[in-house]
Nucleic acid binder design. Sequence first.
RNA 1: GCCCCUGUAGCUUAAUGGAUAAAGCAGCGCUCUUCUAAGGCGCUGAUGUAGGUUCGAUUCCUGCCAGGGGCACCA
Length: 512
Amino acid sequence: MIKKDIEKILGREINLVHPKDFRNGDYTLIADEKTAQEDFERLENNKPECISKIEFIKPRFINIYLSKEFFAESLKEIVEKGENFGRSEHARGFKVMVEHTQPNPFKQFHIGHMMNNAIGEAVARIIKWNGAEVKTASYHGDIGMHVAKALWKGDYALGSKAFEEDAQAKAEIQELNKKIYDKSDPALNKKYEEGRKKSLEEFGQIYERLGSKFDFNFFESEAAPVGKEIVLENMQNLPAGRQVFEESEGATVFKGEKYGLHTRVFLNSDKIPTYEAKEVGLAKIKKEKYAFDQSVTITANEQDAFFYVVEAAIGEVFLELKGKLKHLSHGMLRLPSGKMSSRTGDVITAEALIEEVKTRTKGDEQVAIAAIKYMILRQSIGNDIVFDFEKSVSTEGDSGVYLQYAHARANSILEKAGRKGNATGESGETREIERMLYRFPEIVERAGKEYAPNYITTYLTELASSFNNFYAHEQVISDEPESAYRLAIVEAFSIVMKNGLNILGIAAPEKM
RNA sequence: GCCCCUGUAGCUUAAUGGAUAAAGCAGCGCUCUUCUAAGGCGCUGAUGUAGGUUCGAUUCCUGCCAGGGGCACCA
């Protein structure tokens, strides 16, 4: 709003930022050195009501201070909009599918899945808050070599180890994979179906605990035949030179070299579709189920190279999908005590982590899950994160609990006061908390444009800190005329914090 | 060997090309007769390295060093 007002006055687009230090104003216009003086004078002479002061700092900084009336007005707006405060319209009409979590049946739901789930859930919600229509999807690897490895002797780690070390076992597992794929062995089919069903039930339970819901569940078993067909079609029915896929050493591959990438196998020499071909099939299934403008897939960054190649292949097969696929990757969730590997069976399940953290949150599961989610979401997506039980999940400082606690405190004050705030009353000095609250919608929008949940966590932490400061230094409930205005601040804070936690998929208990 | 990602305080992390690089933890001092002390206030402490672009670089470009990931029938 402010930006548009100023652009109107100056008649051009401007570079407007929030200074890091509030003492330098609420906004800074970074002007061109040549026109800065002129811009300053024009603003000074056409000052909008919401601006109380404008100052010109030497070469090019024009600092803008908002008026008391502006802050009072923003508090009123927050209270009026309530749970809708912060919603943006900038992505209205845009259809997005967000695929995340992707646990594989026959294998455990480990902390890597939990990390992916926290990010995926937050990203989906952020996009939704920006006005887009969002559908979430999980994709389950219910077929493929990992299933054969798991079914070989009933244990994935065992099968995986034997596959690499024992040629005999490797041959048996490959044979098993073929049988699972063509469903030629009734006894095996039964074992397979039972195991698959059990896994999916367990995943459902953990989703519920994490507060995650999916609009679609896709399976590799359905994507496989679709993918295989597409691969064959784009090889056989096209003239030489126009073929997307080609034969090489008995396998069917996509030569990524023409994109500066590398070759990957889509059908193995047994004509069984690999993960690559299944991903192509999945793209087709997705677009038929939901006519998305963008499909976001969230995975660990060890799959980056895989996705570059597969997306290039999909772009050739489905021209209309070119540029509509977005791959977002995150690092590993590392624990202070060593690495985790699903191949050796050395995995830490999501459940084990939740239980472990619970012992440090007085047994409260909502608080424990909030602590874990916050640790994951507080930093920019992409790098590994180190999850330290002892310190990082502590209930102090930069943590999910800190946010929940500040929110609960605000509610407690409102309840104790037994009356609503009133932002039209006596306001006194403008406080840091007021200077933070009105910014929430711009934070949501920025987070939406960059798929960056940590913009929200960072903001909320600063907001909670401002609130705690405010709370520690001012008597909110009193007979003074400013009391009503202070209550309005508390009320607005409670709303913004709750909405913020909601966007992140973190619970916001009313009491703690 | 080739490709991709990452190097910020003792530790874990922030910082849409902008002002004095921001927090939390740890350490050292304060602070509960007062609305939830799971809180607040203060001190100490950092951009791997060498260049380049720019009025201005943690941010963009190049070399080097260090760490992680990937590179044909796994997912």
